[in-house]
Simulated assay, not measured.
Amino acid sequence: MSLILNIMRIAVIGCGGIGGVVAGILGSQESDVLCVDINKDTVKRINDRGIRLYGKKGNINTSVRAVSSIGDEEGEFDVIVITVKSMVLRDVFELNKDHLSNDGLILTLQNGIEILDIVKDFPDVKTVAGAVGYNSQIDEKGEYIVTAQGGITIGNLTTGSDEDLLRLKNIFDPGILIDINRNITGVLWSKLLIVCGVTGLGGCSGLRLGELLGHREARQLFYRVVTEGASVSKKLGIQLEKFGRAINPEKFGDHKGGYPIFARYLLLKLIGITRQNIKAGIILDIERGNRTEVDFINGAVVKAGMALGIDTTVNREIVRVVKEIEQGNRRMTKGNLLEIMELNKR
């Protein structure tokens, strides 16, 4: 911990849409924040201009330092926030865990559930996982736009205490509201299922959220995606959890206790209207020529389902279609949704 005013020393690793907002808000709240990103252009932009964000969390312009590697800095960190993509999470976790102070902790913020396997290999590293409820993207000027309001739900995965969670809450509030949940595994799975539906189907079709959820086929596939994922989580003994303002995704499934079809329709339509311009992360990755996270999102449901003998046809087909798009063998179109619907009927 910094000796000056006992300010927490925080490193934010990965300054994309989620990490940039975290760094900007914490920096504006007088935390000692260091940004770490392997993209040299991002590092230069942050050092030259600071972090600028606007939208649902207000307008913030704050000066923070940025480096390409945490090893470039002397000393240790009280909190390391890791917001990188799921496919590199394990490597980044292993590389940076030794830069924690004696009582330091890692907070991971991803769409997937990869951290649940990682902590099994590092049970002595104090690790807190979080599910992000807001949405943000980087615009053409390198500024961060928050397109949907929300906070972060956190919980301990290893040796952390309630005091550690309260410490994080005090650091983030009021800029980013923090909810604490003792069943963080259930929260992560709930977030995963929502992302499987929204991001997976968005990546197949190329449609923004409002237009996507306006199509009957997309809504029907969303129900199937969630039903498959909820079946897997139930078999694993995981109780899905409502997080933030979100609805428990199990309510969108075809299980006992799910909402009637008409209620599901109205809720998805409402989500589409209130978040109509959101573009799925998979779409952004494809447009930028980057590898997508589909193997760690819908693919995570497929992998677990195969091990348990549970059918995950729709999630499997989403993975197949997205990978064909990645490889340049298919375009993002609404027709891909119709194809998956037909395959699901067989």
Results as ranks from 00 to 15, higher is better:
129 A>M: 08
72 D>W: 13
125 V>E: 00
116 L>E: 02
82 I>A: 12
87 M>R: 14
133 G>T: 05
171 I>P: 00
72 D>E: 15
108 T>H: 06
117 D>S: 03
146 V>Y: 07
143 E>Y: 01
167 R>W: 10
174 P>A: 12
161 S>Y: 03
140 E>R: 13
133 G>L: 11
133 G>P: 00
130 G>F: 03
115 I>R: 07
137 Q>Y: 14
132 V>E: 07
91 D>L: 06
177 L>D: 11
90 R>P: 01
117 D>Q: 01
84 V>Y: 11
169 K>C: 06
168 L>N: 09
157 L>A: 06
175 G>E: 11
79 V>C: 12
141 K>T: 13
71 G>A: 15
176 I>F: 05
153 T>C: 02
127 T>H: 02
111 N>Y: 05
87 M>K: 13
157 L>K: 02
117 D>W: 00
95 L>G: 01
171 I>M: 15
139 D>T: 09
72 D>M: 14
163 E>S: 13
159 T>C: 09
121 D>H: 05
154 I>E: 05
110 Q>H: 08
72 D>C: 12
77 F>K: 09
71 G>C: 14
123 P>A: 00
148 A>E: 12
157 L>G: 05
140 E>V: 13
71 G>K: 15
123 P>K: 02
172 F>Q: 09
148 A>K: 14
144 Y>F: 15
177 L>M: 13
166 L>H: 12
81 V>R: 11
167 R>L: 12
131 A>F: 07
155 G>M: 02
84 V>F: 06
131 A>I: 08
84 V>N: 08
128 V>Y: 03
168 L>G: 11
131 A>N: 04
108 T>V: 11
97 K>M: 06
177 L>P: 05
80 I>V: 10
97 K>Y: 08
130 G>E: 04
161 S>C: 07
130 G>P: 02
128 V>L: 05
91 D>W: 00
80 I>G: 04
165 L>N: 07
101 S>Q: 08
119 V>A: 01
163 E>P: 00
